[in-house]
């Protein structure tokens, strides 16, 4: 009888561990790269090393150059994909320095869809156009499709950022469970965040994320929607990114229900 109990318990434990390790837990790493690696000679390798130590499912990247004069005409996104073995997508915000400048996503899983929408605002206030890039992927173990989005909002006024957040929400839609990360250039109390992102679940806390060397301001975020589909398992502000960029990296582990 005791033997039978032992077998049943073992089976239940196995089942439980199987459930826990199935692909419903997603690790997301967010990094503003500071002018596409300007602090490390525009080199992708230090970022690849940094990414690999956290083994994320997705990496959301801001301030990415695509073949600009300043970065020696390198395709930073594809170089990172080659270094890490991830799949990649790039979203252009503006033409810049004979190339392009924007955001990017690295994904462990093949990308089914890419969509890039430029964000604008009141011309008299806005410094430059920004963008929201999203990808759709199918999680291998559950077969569920999720959307991963990244943005970097304008460093101008709350009004411009409110307008950009409104456009961003329209572009992302609500077809699939979505994680959105990026540099919003906005404090938590600003309307762009408090009202504009009210329909999203906050994955991050309010700990400061910038500058990485001595964080004093909260401007980088991770959000999820719909709010009842996601559980936050852990969240960290990583100041050890100070060697490669001026923003703290954000690392979150979330569970899709």
């Amino acid at each position: 009888m005791n033997k039978l109990k032992y077998i049943v318990c073992s089976l239940l434990l196995l089942l439980a561990s199987g459930t826990l390790t199935s692909q419903t837990t997603i690790r997301v790493l967010n990094i503003n790269t500071r002018m596409s690696g300007q602090m490390v000679g525009y080199n992708a390798a230090p970022f690849a090393d940094y990414i690999e130590q956290y083994n994320p499912d997705f990496v959301m990247l801001q301030e990415i150059d695509y073949k600009t004069a300043r970065n020696g005409f390198r395709d930073f996104t594809t170089e990172l994909a080659a270094e890490t073995g991830y799949f990649s997508a790039f979203g252009r915000a503006i033409a810049y320095s004979q190339g392009e400048y924007g955001v990017a996503i690295l994904s462990k899983y093949p990308i089914e869809k890419i969509s890039n929408t430029q964000l604008t605002g009141n011309a008299s206030e806005m410094k430059e156009m920004r963008t929201v890039l999203f990808i759709d992927v199918i999680l291998p173990d559950t077969g569920e499709k999720i959307r991963m989005a990244v943005t970097h909002l304008d460093h101008s006024t709350d009004g411009v950022r409110q307008s950009m957040v409104q456009q961003l929400n329209g572009a992302i839609g609500s077809s699939f469970p979505t994680l959105l990360a990026g540099d919003f250039n906005a404090f938590p109390s600003e309307t762009a965040i408090s009202t504009g992102m009210a329909s999203w679940k906050r994955v991050c806390n309010n700990f400061a994320t910038f500058p990485a060397s001595n964080p004093s301001r909260k401007i980088d975020y991770i959000f999820a929607q719909p709010t009842d589909k996601w559980n936050v398992k852990s969240y960290q502000v990583l100041s050890n990114s100070a060697a490669i960029t001026d923003h703290c990296a954000l690392l979150a582990e979330v569970e899709l229900q």
Partner: peptide, 27 residues
Amino acid sequence: NVTYGTPRINPGANIAVLAERFPIFVP
């Protein structure tokens, strides 16, 4: 094909960097 063990190897991305092209994987 992309190997997703350790290490992950993405031949398309490696060739794209050298060929100065932008890769899209079709699984």
